[in-house]
Amino acid sequence: MPELLYAGFDTLEVSFQGALKSESLEVLRNAKDEAAKTREDQLIEIGPGKVNGHVPAHGMTGGYAFVFDTGFMGEQWTFMDSEDTSRWNIAVKVRAANLAAHSYQEIKARIQQRLTDMGSIALQESIRRADFAMDFLMPEGFELNQNQVVAHSHSKVSSHWSEKDASSEKQNYPSTVFRGRKLESITIGKMPGRQVIIYNKRKAAIEKQTPFWFKVWNIDPKDTTKHVWRVEFRAGKKELKDKYNLRSFKDFEDSIGDVYCNTAEKVRYINDRESASNISRAIPHPLWQAVAINLELNLLEYRSGLIPGQIREIIREQQENIYWQQIQGNAAGLAVVKGLNEEEINSNYGERLGLQLQSRIQSEQSSFQSSLLRAQRKLHFTTTPAPSD
C-alpha cells in the first residue's frame, strides 16, 4: 500500500471586493516606476502594519496594475489601481511553502491579518482556486500507465504529449508528459474547471529547486530508491462557483471535501483497465484507494509538520550552496586566466584569493556596498524571519 508522506493545500487563490488606501497605492506606483527604471524589483513597505514586499515593473492580467510579493513563505498579492471599494480590486495567491507550513485555518487568519496590516478595506471574499495535494511513497517498480486512467463519461479530457499534436481533438484520453521512455505525469481535465494530475514529485522538487519537500517527506535527496508520486486535485473558478456555488471562506470550509471526493469518484486510477469488462466495476489501484481514504479525513487540518523557520533555513542553505558553487566556478576560471598550474592552485591559491578579495572590497568599498544593499533587498525574505514565524 502506498505510504502517505504529506497532504495539504498546494494552491489557494482568493479575490476580495475592496481596495487599498490612496497612500499605499501611491507607494506602489512609485515602486513600480522605480523597478522599470532600475530593472530590479523594489523592496517596499505599505500600510499601518508596515508589510514588506517586492514590487516588479509589471502588473498581472485581469486589470491588476501592481504585484506585491511577500516572499516564498508568504503570498503574491495583486492590486488594481483603484480606491473604489465596490470593485474586486484585491487578489492573493498563497505560496506553496506557506501552505506546507500552516493549516488552512492558519492561512486564512494570516490572509485576514495581512489585509488589516496593509490598511486595505475588504468587504467580501471569493475563492478563485484551491488545489489539494497528496504525496505518496510508492513501492519499487511503480510506473504510471495512462491506460489505467478512467475519466467520467461527462469529463472532457484533452490529449497532450511531449511533442504537441495540434490536430488532436480526442476528448477521452489523459494529457501525458514523457521523460525518455517513462511516463512522468498524467493530467485529466482543464482549468479553470476541474483537473487531476498524477506526477513524479521527487523529480519535480529537484528540477524546481524546492528542497524543503525532502525535509517534509523525511527523505534524503540523494536516496534514489525512494519514489515519491503526487496526486493533485485542482478546482478552479468554474468548478467552485458555477458547479458548487462555493464562494466564501465559509462555503469553502463546508464543502471543499465534497468537491474533491466527487472528483475522485469521477476520475479514477484503476489496477488494469484492459482486464475489466465493466469499467465502473474496475478495482481501484492501491494508489487511488489511499487517495480516497485521505480525502475522507479533515482536509482543513492537514499540514506538513514543519515550522516556517525550518523551511526558511533549508532555503537559506540552498542559496548559500548556490553562491559557493558560483564562487568556486569563478575561482577556477580566474586560475585559468592567470595561467596557474596545479601545484600553484593546490598550495596557497585559496589563501591568496582571499587576501586579494579583501583588498578589492576595501579599495572599492562603495561598489561592494551597493552590491551588498541590492543583495539584502533581493534576499530579504530568505534572511529575515516574518514577525509571525
Results as ranks from 00 to 15, higher is better:
residue 148 Q to R: 15
residue 218 N to Y: 02
residue 49 G to M: 00
residue 212 F to K: 08
residue 188 I to Y: 11
residue 61 T to V: 09
residue 355 L to I: 12
residue 378 K to W: 10
residue 19 A to G: 07
residue 146 Q to A: 12
residue 84 D to G: 05
residue 286 P to A: 05
residue 299 L to R: 01
residue 72 F to E: 01
residue 181 R to S: 12
residue 122 A to W: 00
residue 53 G to N: 02
residue 73 M to T: 08
residue 226 K to F: 01
residue 46 I to Y: 02
residue 141 G to H: 13
residue 348 N to S: 13
residue 44 I to H: 01
residue 161 W to M: 09
residue 157 V to E: 05
residue 216 V to P: 01
residue 295 L to K: 00
residue 223 D to S: 07
residue 111 I to D: 00
residue 281 R to G: 05
residue 139 P to D: 11
residue 3 E to I: 14
residue 85 T to F: 03
residue 188 I to F: 11
residue 192 P to D: 04
residue 12 L to C: 04
residue 47 G to Q: 01
residue 388 S to C: 06
residue 298 N to I: 02
residue 287 L to Q: 02
residue 28 L to C: 02
residue 321 N to T: 10
residue 245 N to T: 11
residue 183 L to N: 06
residue 328 Q to D: 14
residue 292 A to K: 12
residue 161 W to N: 10
residue 214 F to M: 06
residue 28 L to T: 03
residue 97 A to R: 03
residue 371 S to D: 10
residue 285 H to K: 08
residue 72 F to T: 00
residue 323 Y to K: 15
residue 354 G to V: 03
residue 49 G to T: 03
residue 24 S to R: 08
residue 194 R to I: 10
residue 45 E to R: 04
residue 36 A to S: 09
residue 81 D to K: 07
residue 114 R to L: 09
residue 243 K to H: 13
residue 249 F to K: 00
residue 16 F to P: 00
residue 343 E to F: 10
residue 75 E to S: 05
residue 185 S to T: 08
residue 279 I to S: 13
residue 183 L to Y: 09
residue 314 I to Q: 14
residue 4 L to C: 05
residue 116 T to N: 09
residue 48 P to R: 13
residue 339 G to E: 04
residue 158 S to C: 08
residue 128 R to C: 03
residue 341 N to F: 11
residue 357 L to Y: 14
residue 370 S to I: 11
residue 113 Q to A: 10
residue 5 L to Y: 06
residue 371 S to Q: 13
residue 23 E to L: 09
residue 26 E to G: 04
residue 225 T to A: 10
residue 260 Y to H: 15
residue 359 S to Q: 15
residue 125 E to C: 09
residue 317 E to T: 15
residue 297 L to P: 01
residue 82 S to E: 01
residue 209 Q to S: 06
residue 383 T to N: 12
residue 257 G to F: 06
residue 9 F to C: 06
residue 252 F to E: 01
residue 358 Q to F: 12
residue 161 W to F: 14
residue 243 K to N: 11
residue 184 E to Y: 00
residue 43 L to R: 02
residue 103 S to Q: 08
